[in-house]
Design a protein around this nucleic acid. Structure first.
Lengths: 251, 251
DNA sequence: CGGGAAGTTGAAGAGCGTCAAAAGTAGTGG
DNA sequence: CCACTACTTTTGACGCTCTTCAACTTCCCG
């Protein structure tokens, strides 16, 4: 399946039901509302958002946008996992973040997106046109305050990631990353232990400033030493959490 | 001079003239207003900010706050350079950013600062109590919008830094850093060429995920190859900009 | 001047990357 | 249901960049 093909699927869905939303108010049933922008509005105010929102659906591997695209929209993940990345001209890639339900995507720089974004798993998103969202912001300043909070949270996470990339060893990076995935799962109301790790070794490597081979070796080493277990591909079980925590370098 | 001692100096200045500000409106004469939060307000509205602002002055090497301190204030640099950093328990340090006039400091996490902050050069700052600033925000939502813009700018910069830390070689990191310092100087209305590099090799290293020795070696190498010159300590002249740009990896 | 910090330079070593190949996994079509 | 293919992951051997450790030099500030 080509990336282009599934992008089309996403687009079709998007065009398919822009209006139905303002009637049904799907946001009222949204499971991640408390995590995201929309928590700033009361139930009866949500219609102002539903009126301008559009649903987008992506299959695993689909691109959402590239950093060369005009930053016309902002997205909000409702289900699935998205990776955002930056490329160097020679092809080196840095995955600057993995985003989960409730997270916002669409950082802009000079009218273009500040990064590329691609679905790691099958994903659904809420799509807002920037201009329209700005109008709603005019009416509800508390939305802007909420967006500011979300931005600050992300900046705190970015600080941590810089420590990881600048000062941690390969083993510390993997341990930190697994613990982070676990705690983020808890934040979203999921259980902490068998961690969902839907991204490939290569994506992990590009996120942690390593190579696939190193990630593979370290993960194997952690398994052999009994800190983690790999029951099925895509899931990692934390067997000895305190060992992982010590290895993370943060303690 | 101990860090504690100069902190006292800063504090004394801060207490010394909290009131004089609302009379004189120093913000009206502020040279970096266009870069910062205050650009969101008209001249006659500035009094609402000046009423709650306090001046702080730091000598080079002084700490502004540590990540264990209660995040009671937000600061705005008016002159000088501040470094913000995070420490690992074993002492490894990551300088997550160097901040210049117009930049904001005081990111919070769970009521504490998200990082430590220390003056690189002699520095002056505007200090706002968070609670009081929040009240002014209530009245002028456009301040929040401006803060959101500033936060987004910083997030864009953080993305770049992650690429640098995760995927660039030592040489590319140094070249990128020097070019960034140069372009940031231009943003603040200074000239691009003899770059002010007030931070120590050690600070640079901790910012770029390297060691002092490596920074020193690469800088020497760049000088020998004629890309840069070191007329005086603390200044670096870009002799061959396009060579630096090629070396940065971004082109 | 003089003493301590900052910066430079050198030699040796470690950690991670690179290259290569094998093993495992998933999707496809007969 | 199985075979075929393509991709991902794992494992191994080797090499290189950057770190580490150490000594020396330069630069400040008293």
């Amino acid at each position: 399946m080509s990336t282009f093909e599934v992008k089309q699927i996403g687009s079709r869905l998007a065009e398919a039901r822009p209006r139905s939303y303002s009637d049904q108010s799907p946001c009222a049933a949204c499971t991640v509302r408390s995590l995201t922008l929309c928590s700033a509005l009361e139930r009866d105010e949500l219609s102002h958002l539903t009126a301008i929102v559009t649903s987008v659906e992506l299959a695993a591997g689909d691109g959402l946008f590239e950093d060369t695209d005009d930053a016309t929209h902002i997205f909000n993940i409702t289900a699935g996992v998205i990776k955002v990345y930056k490329l160097l001209p020679d092809g080196r890639r840095q995955v600057t973040g993995f985003l989960f339900p409730g997270d916002f995507i669409g950082l802009e720089r000079d009218g273009r997106y500040a990064y590329g974004a691609e679905a790691v798993t099958h994903t659904t998103l809420c799509r807002f046109r920037r201009k329209q969202l700005a109008e709603v912001f005019q009416r509800f300043p508390k939305l802007e305050r909420r967006l500011l909070e979300l931005a600050w949270n992300e900046m705190v996470a970015d600080q941590e990631q810089m420590v990881l990339l600048g000062r941690k060893t390969a083993r510390e990076r993997i341990a930190s990353f697994l613990l982070l995935l676990s705690s983020r799962a808890v934040q979203r109301g999921q259980k902490a232990n068998p961690i969902n790790v839907p991204m490939s070794r290569n994506d992990m490597a590009d996120h942690l400033g390593l190579t696939t081979e190193t990630v593979s070796r370290v993960v194997t080493s952690l398994r052999r030493q009994g800190a983690i277990a790999l029951p099925v591909p895509g899931k990692i079980e934390i067997v000895d959490r305190s060992a992982l925590e010590e290895m993370s370098g943060d303690l």
